[in-house]
């Protein structure tokens, strides 16, 4: 715990690994915040971003389809197909939007999100 505190992280237990569909996403409730969590099985990676799409302020990113462009992992909002990098949250479809991203870790079949 002391090590965690020194790097100022705050791991929040989100759900079990099997709660998140392979190559899909779910929405995690953290207080009043909504976080989109993705299990990118094909790449063996996990990602988390804000759930709200900044384009029309819709709580929808977790229902978006994930994929890649070149090698950049991305998610497409289901409303108007704006795409965002899962790595840094930048908008890949040319608009000036930004998603907040969160670190994710998996331990003993449990998924944690760093909500500092």
């Amino acid at each position: 715990m002391s090590e965690l505190k020194s790097t100022k992280v705050n791991w929040f237990f989100a759900c079990a690994v099997e709660d998140v569909p392979e190559n899909g996403g779910v929405c995690v409730k953290h207080g009043d915040d909504q976080i989109a969590l993705f299990n990118f099985t094909r790449r063996g990676e996990w990602y988390a971003t804000q759930n709200m799409c900044p384009h029309r302020q819709q709580m929808a990113i977790s229902r978006g389809m994930i994929g890649s462009v070149e090698d950049e992992p991305k998610v497409a909002c289901p409303f108007h197909k704006k795409t965002f990098s899962l790595k840094d949250g930048s908008c890949l479809s040319g608009d000036d939007y930004q998603l907040k991203t969160y670190p994710v870790k998996v331990e003993d079949g449990k998924v944690y999100i760093d909500v500092k």
Partner: peptide, 30 residues
């Protein structure tokens, strides 16, 4: 690569047109 929001629904539609499985079968739901 890892696919995207363009090719995924295309393949999903082809699979449904070919086999008419339940479209939410595990792996194809997403």
């Amino acid at each position: 690569g890892d696919g995207c929001e363009v090719c995924k629904p295309v393949v999903a539609s082809i699979l449904a047109s070919l086999w008419n499985d339940m479209i939410l079968k595990k792996g194809n739901d997403v």
